[in-house]
Simulated assay, not measured.
Amino acid sequence: MVKNKNYNKGILVRTCKKCKKIIDEKSLYDYCPECFKRIEEIFEKIEAYLKEYPGATAFEIEQETKVPYHVINNFVRDGRLIEIPNEYLNFECKRCGCLLLSAHHKYCPICRKELEKEMELAKMQLYKSMHHGNAKMHIRHGDTRRKKY
């Protein structure tokens, strides 16, 4: 039995795997143009992440790109992504200790966001202390050009 083919008024027609719209029988893809475009955008997002972090796990890709795990597995099933098993990938977040399953990051996404917020807060506090009249006078040590009276 051929997938994505239905009978409509006795005529064999091909439908999009995702939205079930009728597509051209001679189409190269199993998706309508709109669904195909969305799928390609998602794949490009994953591809860009893998270029920056080669060898990332599906779990890590899901955490970082917000692409659901099952979508990543569909790309593996379709042969567009290759999953290389590695039983030695067990890294802990340096802050909370949760399992990362990635050698590319030292902190989990939650801790990274919290650290970024803390850094922004520290920058703001430093900026405020430098620009709000809290400067204090100090004597410059090591100045050998003193006037003698």
Rank of each mutant, 00 (worst) to 15 (best):
R38M: 04
K37N: 09
A48G: 06
Y29S: 12
G55N: 12
E47F: 11
P54W: 13
L50A: 06
E34T: 10
F43V: 01
C16S: 11
C16H: 12
I39S: 00
C16F: 12
I39P: 00
K20W: 01
D30V: 03
L50K: 03
G55D: 04
G55I: 10
G55T: 10
A56Y: 10
D24Y: 12
E25I: 11
F36E: 07
F36P: 00
C16G: 11
K26A: 13
I46G: 01
A56M: 12
A56E: 08
I23Q: 01
I42C: 00
A48F: 07
Y53S: 04
I42S: 06
K20V: 11
E47H: 14
D30C: 06
E40V: 10
E40K: 13
I23E: 02
E52H: 11
E40L: 09
D24R: 10
C32K: 04
I23F: 05
E44W: 03
I42M: 06
D24Q: 10
A56H: 07
P54I: 14
K26T: 05
E44H: 06
F43C: 02
C19N: 10
C19H: 12
C35K: 06
P54D: 09
E41V: 08
K17Q: 15
A56W: 08
R38E: 13
I23D: 02
G55Y: 12
L50S: 03
Y31M: 02
K26L: 13
K21R: 10
K21N: 12
Y31A: 00
C19W: 13
A48W: 06
C19I: 10
I39Y: 09
D24S: 14
D24P: 01
K18T: 15
I22K: 06
Y49E: 00
C32F: 09
K45R: 15
E47N: 15
D24L: 14
F36K: 08
E52K: 15
K17T: 13
S27E: 09
Y31E: 03
K26E: 14
D30T: 07
I42D: 01
I22V: 11
I46S: 02
Y49W: 07
Y31C: 00
F43G: 05
I46Q: 01
K21M: 07
P33R: 02
Y49L: 05
Y53W: 08
Y49M: 01
K51D: 05
E52W: 12
A56G: 13
K26Y: 12
K17S: 15
P54R: 15
Y29I: 00
F36N: 08
R38G: 03
Y49R: 05
K45Y: 03
F36H: 10
S27F: 05
F43L: 05
E41I: 11
D30E: 11
K21P: 02
K45W: 03
C16I: 13
A48V: 05
A56S: 15
T15V: 12
K51L: 02
A56P: 09
C32Y: 08
K37G: 08
T15H: 04
E47W: 03
E41S: 12
K20G: 10
I42Y: 04
E34D: 13
E25H: 01
E44P: 01
E34K: 06
R38C: 01
Y31F: 11
K45H: 03
Y29T: 09
F36G: 02
